[in-house]
Simulated scan of single mutants.
Amino acid sequence: MNKCHIAYLACTAALLGTSLGAAPSTAAAHTVRLVKPGDSIQQAVDAAGPGDTVLLAHGVHHGSVDVTTPGITLRGMGRGTVLRPAAATGASATAKAAPAASGACAAAGNGICVTGTRTDSVKGVTIASLTVTGFRKTGVYAHSAEALTVRSVTAVGNGVWGIATERSPRGVFRGNTARDNGDAGLFLANTVTEEEGASDAGGTVVERNRLEGNRIGVTVRRLRNLTVVGNRLTGNCAAVFLVGDENKPKAGRVTVRENRIERNNKSCPKTARLDALQGSGIVLTGTDDNVITHNVIRDNAGKSPLSGGIVVFKSFVGTPSERNRISDNLLSGNSPADLVNTDPGVGNTFQGNSCVSSQPAGLC
Rank of each mutant, 00 (worst) to 15 (best):
A47G: 05
V122Y: 08
H62Y: 12
L274E: 14
S199D: 11
N181V: 03
G139H: 07
T115N: 08
T285W: 14
A142C: 02
T204P: 00
D299P: 00
V205L: 15
L226A: 09
C355L: 07
T31I: 13
T126C: 03
V67Y: 08
F316P: 00
T126K: 14
N334G: 11
V82I: 15
A87P: 02
N231Y: 09
P70T: 07
G286K: 13
A155V: 01
K3Y: 15
V283W: 06
I292S: 06
G347V: 07
A198D: 05
R170S: 04
L15V: 09
N300R: 05
G203V: 05
T53K: 04
A28I: 07
A91R: 15
V54E: 12
C113E: 03
G202C: 03
R263C: 05
L15M: 10
T149K: 10
K270E: 15
L226N: 03
T293H: 02
S199F: 04
A95I: 14
Q42L: 02
S335G: 05
I112G: 03
G318M: 14
D200P: 00
R224H: 09
L15N: 13
G281Y: 15
V82H: 08
V317H: 06
G202I: 02
L15C: 10
I310D: 06
K137N: 07
S304M: 04
N214T: 00
A178R: 01
L20T: 04
N295A: 04
G185A: 00
S332E: 15
N190T: 04
S280H: 02
V340K: 13
S321D: 00
V32P: 00
G175Y: 07
A28D: 14
N265G: 08
V317M: 11
T342R: 13
S92H: 14
A57W: 08
L55M: 09
P344K: 04
S354G: 07
G80R: 14
K123D: 08
T285V: 05
G63T: 00
R208D: 07
D289M: 00
S152N: 07
N329A: 09
P336N: 15
I6E: 15
V172T: 11
E246N: 10
R174A: 15
R273T: 14
A106K: 13
V228R: 04
S121M: 12
G134T: 02
